[in-house]
């Protein structure tokens, strides 16, 4: 006993080595594309959160005299929409709902889907087959069609579009997490944990989740862009947000009539959707390569 304690005291403490996530963060910091994407995402998110302080005008107050003004019109830096409301203000406020109904379904589906996938993957056997075949039924429908069908059935509204998008993404995330879990389950360290007498719950908590959730999380971040586009699509079809709420998909819909008179202004919400979703995708790519380095 004493010899060991002495040895520990005698030797200088060496700094604990960097944890896995710390080293992923370190590598991510050195990826310029991912960092630019992250900066854009943060900018949009912060602008949306602090919209009342950032936005130059009231998002709901229009002016019949100043309808469909071009970009750069005095007092309207990004022009005015079909009801004479300031486009910049509405784009900033629109980020709130668009991000919310883009991120929430993915977040919910990540929690539920990875739960289903890890359970099916770890239990294996017949139960796995049954669960995954049920999941497969959802793959029979293209995700756009499924989202529209579910939203149509549930009725319009923000909550319903979040629910329907969550249902669209659960099977996809469940499939990925099931595949990763099945792979992890047969690793020797999981068998070693079983040999040490640990319960299935403890093994999943300590040995499986840490190795499964990382890759699944990366996959989920790549779904945010899809979710945003689908959510905008639902709003565009009148199944999501109702006017006069500012939301990028809905704005795209209401401005489509102005496509010949003010094409640039009409394209702005689309550009926001594009920039946000491509930023999420690039960040997700960066995260993937930062995590792929030998574990």
């Amino acid at each position: 006993m004493s010899a060991i304690v002495d040895a520990r005291i005698a030797l200088p403490k060496i700094k604990a080595s960097r944890g896995y996530w710390a080293s992923v963060g370190h590598r991510l910091m050195r990826d310029p594309v991912a960092m630019v994407a992250l900066a854009i995402i943060l900018l949009i998110v912060l602008a949306a959160i602090f919209a009342p302080f950032v936005a130059p005008a009231d998002p709901f107050r229009g002016s019949m005299l100043r309808r469909l003004k071009p970009i750069g019109f005095p007092g309207y830096p990004l022009g005015a929409d079909e009801l004479g409301r300031d486009m910049l203000t509405r784009l900033i406020y629109g980020g709130r709902l668009s991000l919310f109904i883009g991120v929430m379904p993915v977040l919910l589906a990540f929690c539920i889907g990875s739960g289903i996938g890890v359970f099916a993957g770890y239990v294996g056997g017949r139960i796995n087959t049954v669960v995954m075949r049920v999941i497969d039924v959802f793959f029979a429908f293209p995700s756009v069609l499924l989202a529209i069908a579910l939203s149509g059935a549930l009725g319009a509204g923000i909550l319903n579009s979040i629910v329907s998008l969550t249902i669209v993404f659960i099977p996809q995330i469940a499939r990925v997490s099931e595949a990763v879990t099945t792979q992890i389950r047969t690793r020797d360290y999981v068998e070693a944990a079983r040999v040490s007498g640990a319960s299935a719950f403890t093994i999943v908590r300590v040995h499986v989740l840490g190795n499964v959730l990382g890759p699944v999380f990366v996959y989920a971040t790549s779904l945010i862009s899809v979710s945003m586009i689908l959510a905008s699509g639902l709003s565009f079809l009148g199944l999501g947000v109702k006017p006069p709420e500012p939301e990028w998909g809905l704005m795209l819909n209401t401005l489509r009539t102005a496509i010949y008179t003010q094409p640039l202004v009409a394209a702005l919400p689309g550009a926001m959707i594009f920039i946000t979703s491509i930023s999420f995708n690039l960040f997700s790519d960066g995260l993937r390569s930062a995590m792929e380095v030998k574990q």
Binding site: D188, A193, S196, S199, V206, N211
Partner: peptide
Amino acid sequence: SLNPRLTVEDTIAFGPRV
């Protein structure tokens, strides 16, 4: 046979803690 996410001491201490 070693969990890449666990430190050496956590790996060894896992069994006794169980």
